[in-house]
Amino acid sequence: MSKIETKNLDLFYGTFQALIDVDLVIKEKMITALIGPSGCGKSTLLRALNRMNDLIDGVKVTGKVLIDGKNIYEPGTDLVELRKKVGMVFQRPNPFPLSVFDNIAYGPRTHGLKDRGKLGEIVERFLSRVQLWDVLKDRLEDSALDLSLEQQQRLCIARLVAVMPDVVLMDEPCSALDPLATQRIEELMFELKKDYTILIVTHNMQQAARVSDWTGFMLLGKLVEYGETKQVFTNPQEKQTEEYITGRYG
């Protein structure tokens, strides 16, 4: 089942074209990795999928992004609904300067839940989901900024899945973490794959090879190659892909 489809997607920052005619089909409940050198447009592509690029001045998008068959760039699209469905985890862990509890409860509260008891259940459930409950159950009122970076990133993931999205976009979620923490976040991603469609942008090719089912290689705004991860890494069809993954480029 395809969850997300982009069709002839072009994106401009002012006059600079950051995405060139990107056609991509993303399968449901799989992990898809986007790799490529810095500035190739992989983060831009990711941010085009929940329209986070709208926050930047001078962005222009043409083409289509279909999510569950609906074009999200159609006029009148409800951005709040879109972002509830397509959530995002950022490169630097960005817990809000609030307590652990308030961070997890943020999404549900934002969407209208007020009952303290129900919020408590949600906090427990989603902290457990990211294996933080046992560590943090006595520290729920502590500031989230006092946690370790790995815990912060887990918290951000929990905060996101507490909104019950379908799609989780991850923009280099491990680049601020040490290798052990990275490994544990990757395990978490495997665990989350059962319920969510995950897209991850990564600099780290090993990471893409380890965690993803599908891989897209981007270069200078173009999606050069897209296929099953095993095939892309062992038998790339394009010369540029081969050069990149063998370290001769980028």
Binding site: M52, L55, F90, N94, F96, G107
Partner: peptide, 21 residues
């Protein structure tokens, strides 16, 4: 900026983002 983006990415409205974060 990451606070604002984080909040919007959770489906909060602009105003909710302003007064909650």
């Amino acid at each position: 900026r990451i606070y604002k983006e984080g909040s919007l990415a959770l489906g909060a409205t602009h105003w909710q983002t302003i007064y909650r974060v």
